[in-house]
């Protein structure tokens, strides 16, 4: 399609105004989201007793880290132009592996973890392969694979998914634990390390760059010597893997495991990615998801403090996703597609 918007010579437009400058800054960095997070935190600090206390901030960070960890795979899937609806069920898979399987098969925690990695990666990789090979919507394929994986867990455990996490594991997310003597639980440290590592992966490695290119324009990427199908396989394998590992942390946090343990995190993680400003096929970034997770957690915590019910919380997530999408996730006009 020869589109003239790119073809004709550009002419000098009027000088950029302040709003445009701000919009440009916003497109490079999630300023608005940070501002909202800060304002929401200040509102909480002034209206709720003990909201700004050390423990309260720590528990905020623990809650946000769970959303954030669940959102890793989602970020990658959305960056390559898909979506991962299997996050919830792979969270359960991860949790089941380290709790029930250790009891059921008498394996050690480490063995379970070592088995979890290839298990999730293979199922996820298959999703990526199917999506790219048969050109089908990741929405449907991930739904299917999530259901399938959950089914596998249910067969192993004969339907009763209910397990308890060992005490030492629960310390991972406990308010009172410390990390190498520092006064915060390890999960926060893990989240920080993962955030930095993913920033480096996405922006400072050749694979990360190729992944972004495959999401930005799959056809051009293929012609630019990028193995796009392999990228899809890797991304969805990583997505399932990270969801499984987040499930381990989730098991630590909630102490018990059941089939619906992952549900809320699917939508929260999706909301965090979208609110952060990552768009289907890019641009985007995991650090944006981190900001999105923090913003979402702070706002909900403040509102819950003011008596927000679970139902309202769901309505809030839905509304926030819609607003965020309407701000920067809109599709092309029909007239631009002819």
């Amino acid at each position: 399609m020869t589109t003239l918007s790119a073809a004709a010579e550009p002419t000098i437009d009027e000088r950029p105004r302040t709003t445009e400058l701000l919009a440009r800054a916003q497109s490079k960095f999630p300023l608005l989201q940070i501002a909202i997070t800060v304002v929401a935190f200040l509102v909480g600090a002034f209206t709720l007793d003990g909201f700004a206390s050390e423990n309260s901030v720590k528990s905020l960070l623990i809650l946000a880290s769970l959303v954030g960890l669940a959102g890793i795979g989602q970020t990658l899937a959305i960056l390559i132009g898909g979506v991962d609806m299997s996050v919830a069920n792979f969270l359960v898979v991860g949790a089941v592996f380290v709790t029930q399987f250790t009891q059921l098969y008498g394996m050690s925690f480490t063995t379970a973890l070592l088995l979890l990695v290839p298990f999730t990666a293979i199922l996820g990789g298959f999703v990526g392969w199917v999506c790219h090979r048969f050109n089908v919507e990741p929405l449907v394929v991930t739904l299917a694979m999530g259901t399938f994986a959950l089914g596998l867990m249910q067969i192993q455990t004969e339907g009763t998914i209910a397990g308890g996490a060992p005490g030492w594991l629960m310390a991972l997310t406990s308010l009172r634990s410390t990390t190498f003597g520092l006064p915060f639980p390890p999960v926060i440290a893990i989240w920080a390390v993962v955030t930095v590592a993913l920033a480096i992966f996405i922006h400072r490695t050749a694979v990360g760059r190729r992944m972004l290119a495959a999401g930005a324009n799959g056809r051009a990427a293929g012609l630019s010597l990028i193995k796009v199908r392999r990228m899809w396989i890797v991304v969805f394998a990583l997505s399932a893997l990270f969801a499984g590992l987040a499930g381990v942390v989730l098991a630590a946090f909630s102490g018990t495991v059941n089939t619906s343990i992952g549900g809320p995190y699917l939508f929260q993680s999706l909301a965090a990615v979208i609110i952060g400003g990552t768009v289907f096929g890019g641009p985007g970034d995991y650090s944006r998801t981190v900001i999105g997770a923090l913003m979402l957690t702070v706002i909900t915590t403040v509102l819950i403090g003011h008596g927000l019910a679970t139902s309202d919380q769901q309505i809030l997530y839905g509304a926030v996703i819609l607003i965020a999408m309407a701000l920067y996730g809109r599709g092309r006009k029909m007239s631009d597609r002819v």
């Binding site: 979506v83 919507e137 929405l139 939508f267 999706l270 979208i274 289907f280 019910a309 679970t310 139902s311 309202d312 919380q313 769901q314 309505i315 809030l316 997530y317 839905g318 509304a319 996703i321 819609l322 999408m325 309407a326 996730g329 809109r330 599709g331 092309r332 006009k333």
Partner: peptide, 29 residues
């Protein structure tokens, strides 16, 4: 939502599912 706001229909309808599920819970706890 999908046509006028041009939101990706998957995400838009997920969000509305969420909103509606919340409303349902409010109406019939």
């Amino acid at each position: 939502l999908a046509v006028v706001l041009r939101l990706p229909p998957i995400v838009a309808s997920l969000a509305s599912m969420f909103i509606l599920a919340g409303i349902n819970l409010r109406l019939a706890p």
